[in-house]
Structure formats: C-alpha cells, structure tokens
Amino acid sequence: MSQVTLEQLNAMPEQTAQATFLTCCSSEAWARGMTAARPFANHAAVYETADRIWAGLTEQDYLEAFSGHPKIGDVSSLRAKYAHTKALAAGEQSGVNSADEETLQRLAAGNQAYEEKFGFIFIVCATGKTAAEMLSLLEARLPNARSEEVNNAAEEQRKITRIRLEKLL
C-alpha cells in the first residue's frame, strides 16, 4: 500500500479511490461508502467516517471484509510469521512464552477449530502481539456464540482498518 496525501485521496477518480479503500478493508460496501463520503476535511474526518460506515454495515459486509485476510492455519506459515519472536522474547522478558512449536501447533489447531465453528477465519488486530498472546485470545474467544464472535471480529477488523488507513495517509 503506497501512501497518499489527503488531497490526493479526495481528488482521485471514483474507481481509483474505491480500489484504494479496498486495500484497507475488503468490504465493497465500506469502500463505496468511503468513496462517496469524500472530500474529507482532515485525517480525523477520514477515521470518523470509516468507523461510522463500518458500524452501519451488515453481517454479510463484515464477512466479506474478513475473507480478505490471509488464513493463518498451517504451522509452516505460523512458524515463519513468529520466527523472530523467540529471540525478541528471550532478550526482553525471559518469562514470556515465545513462539515455540507447541504454541504454533495449538494456534494452527485453534484457527482451524474457529473457522469450522464460526464459518470465518479468526480475526484479531495482531499488531504487536506474540504468538502466545494470539493463542490466548483465540482460545478465549472459541467458546463464544457466533453472534458474539461476529461482533468481536468486526471490532478487530475496525482496528485493523484504522491502522491501514493511518499507513495509507
């Protein structure tokens, strides 16, 4: 995702703006709403509008956004994702559980169980979280009812979208 100025975002042709917003969140309805809401007066207006539009979407729109995330379910992709955390944890906090093989195996199994139970992948704003923290969150959310989990995942997606918008601008 390349950065743009607020002025560039406001001036983009409709199709380009929608494609740009889709890099932040893969819900077509959200991207259309953001495109239609331009021009934005400032960055705060972008973020407030993003939250307002997100809150007004349907479950189907949320599921569309969730499907835009890569599935983290196999151990080899998890191993690659968390390869650096073991060294970081050892250097910072010796008592922190790092991305050991057991954690990765449990995370892979938990991701699969989550998707089977809820019908969509586990969504969490992973920025700054270790594999062990992700596992803890996943295991805490697995017993939830589907309706509660759609809401939890939607809130996590909102946070992810905000971070992506901040990187975009």
Rank of each mutant, 00 (worst) to 15 (best):
G56K: 00
G56R: 00
G56Q: 02
L57H: 00
L57Y: 02
L57E: 11
T58L: 12
E59A: 09
E59N: 08
Q60G: 13
Q60C: 15
Q60D: 12
D61V: 02
Y62F: 09
L63T: 13
L63Q: 07
E64K: 03
F66V: 01
F66R: 00
S67H: 13
G68I: 02
G68K: 05
G68L: 04
G68W: 02
G68Y: 01
G68V: 04
H69A: 01
H69G: 07
H69E: 05
P70K: 07
K71H: 09
I72T: 07
I72C: 11
D74G: 06
D74I: 02
V75E: 10
V75T: 06
V75I: 09
S76L: 08
S77C: 14
S77M: 15
S77V: 12
S77P: 03
S77H: 11
L78Q: 04
R79I: 04
K81P: 05
Y82T: 07
Y82P: 02
A83D: 14
H84W: 12
T85W: 02
T85Q: 15
K86I: 07
K86W: 03
A87K: 04
A87R: 01
A87G: 11
L88C: 09
A89D: 08
A89S: 08
A90V: 03
A90K: 07
A90H: 06
G91C: 05
G91E: 09
G91T: 03
G91K: 15
E92M: 10
E92V: 08
E92D: 14
E92K: 11
E92N: 10
Q93L: 09
Q93K: 14
